[in-house]
Design a protein around this nucleic acid. Structure first.
Length: 296
DNA sequence: AAGGTACTCAACCGCGGCTAA
DNA sequence: ATTAGCCGCGGTTGAGTACCT
């Protein structure tokens, strides 16, 4: 089992003031524990749930002899101890899904998590805040702005699609280093992409500057057929044009036509400089998403 | 090597909805 | 119909760690 005591026992000691509404009954609050869970607590919770099942968290916490709130037990189980919780970096497919579903539903993390088996709302939320919002901040634009949404739609998401296309073996479809030693769990067989992801791919290409994606909702019999359709569209029927070439073309056209420094969408000098640098660099090589963000 | 800064993510809080009494 | 307790969701915090200077 993974050790959970990475932090000292003093963690979260700042949370000392709680409104009366949130207080536990007096006889319980005096002995309630908070902060990082110990291995013993984890084992107690796991054993209890394996014997009695989950749910009714307050009663569960008392019955198991845990000096924790039901809330705390529920959170620990759902976000960490549950056997089907996935660990490690998000795959390209998952990232694509998150971007797409967030664009539809906003911060409905639990709803988004329902479409990513094994991923928790907390994990997705953290991903969004630490990765996506960070990039918006680096671009000095609001995460809800058209500028950032365009960058996601025309750059980030197509690139993720490209990575899904290009992936040939397990273990390297994450953005960013996989340095936690856990390895990727991702299956790069494209047949594993969920129906939602296929829809995502379709919407991703829909309206992109040099590509028109026909509706894929009709007469779809399988995901592999979807994929073939997308391949056809992506390659435009020209077998000599790799998806990589196509992506380069899309990116270059997008950045040269839609995000020119004089474009009214991009008035501020700082971003213009970044865009220009990006646009010039794009003709030289295909940049990884990470490189793109690092450029500015 | 040391100190500072940035990043990650587990765990917390507040609030609203649901439900049983 | 009311109310208290529980549950789940979204937002926030901060300790630990990685990275940078």
């Amino acid at each position: 089992m993974e050790m959970v005591l990475k932090r000292s026992g003093g963690g979260m000691a700042c949370h000392q003031h709680r409104p009366a509404e949130q207080q536990e009954p007096a006889e319980l609050s005096a002995e309630l524990r908070r902060g990082p869970w110990t291995v013993d607590e984890d084992l107690t919770l796991i054993n209890y749930i394996s014997d009695h099942g989950e749910g009714r968290w307050n009663a569960l916490a008392r019955a198991a002899g845990l000096k924790r709130t039901g809330k705390s037990c529920r959170l620990r189980w759902l976000n960490y101890l549950r056997p089907d919780v996935k660990r490690g970096n998000f795959t390209a497919e998952e990232q694509l899904l998150i971007l797409d579903l967030h664009s539809r539903w906003g911060n409905r993390w639990s709803k988004i998590a329902q479409h990513l088996p094994g991923r928790t709302d907390n994990e997705i939320k953290n991903y969004w805040r630490t990765r996506v919002q960070k990039h918006a901040k680096q671009l000095n634009c609001d995460i809800n702005s058209k500028r950032f949404k365009d960058a996601m739609k025309y750059l980030w998401m197509p690139r993720l699609v490209e990575r899904i296309h290009a992936s040939t073996g397990p273990g390297d479809d994450n953005i960013g280093p996989d340095d936690d030693g856990s390895g990727d769990y991702g299956n790069n067989d494209l047949s594993c992409i969920s129906g939602v992801t296929m829809a995502t791919i379709a919407t991703c290409f829909e309206g992109s500057p040099s590509m028109v994606m026909s509706s894929s909702s009709d007469s779809i019999t399988s995901e592999s057929q979807d994929l073939q359709k997308i391949n056809l569209h992506v390659h435009g029927g020209d077998e000599k044009m790799s998806s990589r070439d196509w992506m380069q073309e899309v990116d270059h056209e997008f950045w040269s036509t839609q995000i020119q420094p004089n474009n009214e969408q991009f008035q501020d000098q700082e971003l213009n400089g970044w865009v220009q640098g990006f646009s010039e660099g794009m003709s030289e090589s295909l940049w990884s998403l990470e490189d793109i963000w690092k450029m500015q």
